[in-house]
Simulated assay, not measured.
Amino acid sequence: MIRLLLADDQALVRGALAALLGLESDLEVVAQVGRGDEVVAAAVEHQAQVALVDVELPGLDGIEVCRALTTHAPGVRSLVVTTFGRPGYLRRAIDAGAGGFVVKDTPAAELAEAVRRVHAGMRVVDPSLATESLLDGANPLTDRERAVLREALTGSPIAEIARTVHLSPGTVRNYLSSAIGKTHTATRAQAAATARDRGWL
């Protein structure tokens, strides 16, 4: 039996996934959590072998969960199962150690097979996202530019962004200007929205 952990902030989604995967004779859901910062402890406690992780989780996002599992529970393979099929998310998840990346509308039989392949040490990637990711290219933003753009999404003024990211207002303006250029947009709001939509944040 392959022991599974499900991490999704929507109980209904977790329940549906558990029911579908539980129909497979070789898969067993041993734990379910609703927060990203609960995954590593639950995976270790329940001796999970594969963690199915959503991207948008409270406490710790799914991509950071993959990184945490790689570091603190290397015996647990991670498979990102998300509504947000953005090429930038795919690239970041793989860089963080995810064994696979599929979208939630993947048919149940394909999802079960993806779990088996990830458990076996193979990599599974949604083919259309893989193509988009190749065409889209690498994330051009630096960590600092991403941090500043994440704050810009809230619509906060420059001074508030500067306080939050512990930089001077002038440095924040420079990062925003650079990010606007890299995203080929005209304003910081457009740059932040474009980066978010491409999965770069």
Rank of each mutant, 00 (worst) to 15 (best):
L52F: 09
I63M: 11
L141M: 07
E64A: 13
P74K: 07
N174L: 15
V102R: 13
S133A: 15
A112D: 10
D54K: 01
S133H: 10
A152T: 01
M122H: 13
A93N: 10
R123Q: 15
L57D: 02
H72R: 14
H119K: 12
S177F: 00
V53I: 14
G121E: 02
V124Q: 09
A93F: 12
D143C: 00
V102Q: 12
E56A: 08
G137W: 00
T164W: 00
T106F: 09
D136K: 08
A51S: 13
D61W: 03
L167Y: 05
T185Y: 07
V76N: 10
P169T: 00
R123F: 01
E151C: 06
P107F: 09
A109R: 13
V103G: 08
R173K: 12
G85C: 12
P74R: 04
S128A: 03
A152D: 01
G155F: 04
H119I: 06
L90V: 14
D61F: 06
S78A: 15
T131W: 02
A73G: 08
D143G: 02
L153E: 03
T142P: 03
A73Q: 05
L134A: 10
R150F: 00
L60I: 00
F101A: 15
S168N: 06
V65M: 07
H166T: 02
